[in-house]
């Protein structure tokens, strides 16, 4: 009985749904603040202390608005795609060891790295469905771009994710984390940098944000959405960003590893994890603000001509180091 209550607590409250929800909103606030400061603006300031509640206000406002379903849209897909995208992403996050163990205890199995990456593809496909089902030319173009981009960049992303797997000698996320007494970002910095760039493309952030380039396709796959569905779509996007940063943290920065000073190790684990995720989010936001948007053909070309060969090279380099050099040290 206690076990079940503990499980429900972990899934619903901490480090599960509620914690992730508020953490996501906090990350959204950090992003908007960093972006504003980089552009010499103030960013949200008057909603709660220092504008901290701005994402919450946006979310609640969207929930209370009228929902419009276009007559021509595929109603079922249109209705369920945002919710499915959000739930798949939260489910994927449940596999990451946030406070030392994954959200559902003992759920990790050999190869859950591959499983988590597959879940992300499913979530991206839901975003595509959201755009495609709304029967709007701009949404369709945006959806097609989502598909083009994530199909292309999934390959190098998976290859780069294999680098830590080879260094740890395991495809299990928990083992990858526990074998990082030195973060893999130090052992394989080339893979780390490439992974951040590829993640940027996977999360549709600048310079790869063609799927929702305002000046070309209005709001991409989100164009026809309003009210609660838009709220969940936006939340899914923010959760996706948190997921990307968490995955980088788990694979390259040693997840919840860090010094434990006193008290519960879970507390310190979560603290280190959250701090590392925030660092990654700030870096990614810096890249977003610094670069201008590429064209869609440049995005595709950059993938097949530059990122893919580089990730193959990085994989070869990592494997040879993991097999011949690091065992000697």
């Amino acid at each position: 009985m206690i076990d079940y209550l503990w499980l429900i607590f972990r899934v619903l409250v901490f480090p599960g749904f509620t914690f992730l929800l508020f953490f996501t909103m906090f990350c959204d606030w950090i992003e908007r603040k960093v972006e504003a400061r980089m552009q010499n603006r103030m960013g949200p300031s008057f909603t709660g202390p220092r504008g901290l509640f701005q994402p919450l206000a946006d979310f609640i406002k969207l929930l209370t608005k009228e929902e419009i379903t276009p007559t021509e849209s595929k109603k079922n897909f249109f209705r369920f795609a945002p919710i499915l995208a959000l739930s798949v992403l939260v489910f994927a996050l449940c596999f990451l060891p946030i406070d030392g163990t994954s959200v559902i205890p003992n759920v990790s199995f050999g190869g859950d790295l591959i499983f988590v990456m597959a879940l992300v593809s499913v979530a991206n496909f839901m975003l595509f469905l959201a755009g495609w089902s709304s029967a709007n030319p701009y949404s369709s173009i945006g959806a097609a771009r989502v598909l083009t981009q994530f199909l292309g960049y999934d390959i190098p992303l998976l290859m780069l994710a294999l680098a830590p797997a080879f260094l740890a000698g395991s495809l299990t996320l928990a083992t990858i984390v526990s074998s990082q007494w030195v973060p893999f970002a130090v052992l394989a910095p080339w893979a780390f940098v490439l992974f951040i760039i590829t993640m940027q493309a996977e999360l549709e952030k600048d310079p790869f944000d063609v799927p929702h380039a305002e000046s070309e396709v209005v709001a991409g796959h989100e164009t026809e959405y309003s009210g609660g569905k838009l709220a969940f779509l936006k939340l899914a996007r923010d959760v996706q960003i948190v997921f990307g940063a968490s995955l980088i943290t788990v694979l390259f920065l040693g997840g919840a590893n860090g010094p434990v000073f006193f008290g519960f190790p879970e507390f310190w684990g979560t603290l280190w994890f959250v701090l590392k995720v925030l660092v990654i989010i700030v870096i990614s936001e810096y890249i977003t603000v610094l670069f201008a948007r590429l064209r869609i053909d440049q995005v595709v070309k950059a993938n097949w001509r530059i990122v893919l060969p580089l990730s193959v090279l990085s994989l070869i380099l990592t494997i040879s180091l993991a097999v011949w050099i690091y065992p000697l040290v």
Binding site: M42, V218, T223
Partner: peptide, 22 residues
Amino acid sequence: LTPKYDVERFGIKLEPSPRHAD
């Protein structure tokens, strides 16, 4: 919308689609 008056301070955001706007 630009730095001098930056209305994002008040949460005002320019949205691309009429479906998102208030």
